Amino acid sequence: YHPGVFRGDKWSCCHQKEKTGQGCDKTR
């Protein structure tokens, strides 16, 4: 789950560079 959006080459919430990554918050 990603609370942010994928912008450019990373997520705005956790700056992960993998769009298919696990995400940053799994509580939702």
Score class of each variant (00 low, 15 high):
F6M: 15
G4L: 00
V5F: 06
W11G: 06
W11A: 11
C24H: 04
T20D: 15
K10T: 05
H15E: 13
Q22M: 10
C24M: 09
K10N: 08
C24L: 01
K26D: 14
V5C: 07
C14P: 06
R7G: 07
V5P: 03
G4H: 01
G8L: 09
Y1S: 08
K26F: 12
P3C: 08
Q16V: 09
C14S: 05
V5M: 15
C24R: 00
Q22D: 03
K26P: 14
K17N: 08
C13D: 03
P3A: 04
G21E: 09
C24P: 03
K10L: 03
P3Y: 15
K10F: 08
G8T: 11
E18K: 02
Y1D: 00
H2M: 00
S12A: 01
T27I: 11
C13W: 00
K19M: 14
C14M: 06
T27H: 12
T20L: 12
D25G: 12
T20C: 15
K17T: 13
K10S: 01
H15Y: 08
E18S: 10
K17V: 09
C24G: 06
K10Q: 11
G21T: 10
G4A: 01
C14G: 04
Q22T: 07
G21Q: 09
F6H: 09
S12R: 00
P3I: 09
D25H: 04
V5K: 15
V5L: 07
C24K: 00
H15C: 07
R28Q: 14
G4M: 04
C14F: 03
S12I: 01
H15Q: 11
C14Q: 07
G21Y: 07
K26Y: 13
R28C: 14
Y1G: 09
C14T: 06
W11D: 07
T27R: 13
R7Q: 11
G8R: 08
D9T: 09
C13M: 12
C14E: 05
T27N: 13
C13N: 11
R28I: 11
Q16W: 12
T27K: 10
W11R: 03
T27F: 05
Y1H: 09
G8Q: 15
K17F: 06
G4Q: 06
C13Q: 01
E18F: 05
T20V: 13
R28Y: 11
H2T: 03
Y1P: 00
G21N: 04
C13A: 02
Q16G: 13
Q22A: 06
D25N: 12
T20F: 10
R28T: 06
H15L: 08
K17L: 07
V5E: 14
G21L: 07
Q16L: 08
C24I: 02
F6E: 11
R28F: 11
E18P: 05
H15I: 00
G4F: 07
D25P: 09
C24V: 02
Q22G: 08
C24A: 02
Q16M: 15
C14R: 04
Q16H: 04
E18V: 08
K17G: 11
D25Y: 00
G21D: 13
F6D: 11
K26A: 06
S12N: 01
F6L: 08
D25R: 08
S12C: 01
R7V: 15
W11S: 04
E18Y: 06
D25V: 14
G8A: 10
D9P: 05
Y1N: 02
V5A: 13
K19N: 15
H15D: 15
S12F: 00
H2I: 00
E18N: 08
F6W: 14
K10H: 11
T20N: 15
Q16P: 01
G4N: 04
V5R: 10
S12E: 02
R28A: 14
H2P: 00
K26T: 14
C13E: 03
K19W: 13
K26E: 05
K26R: 08
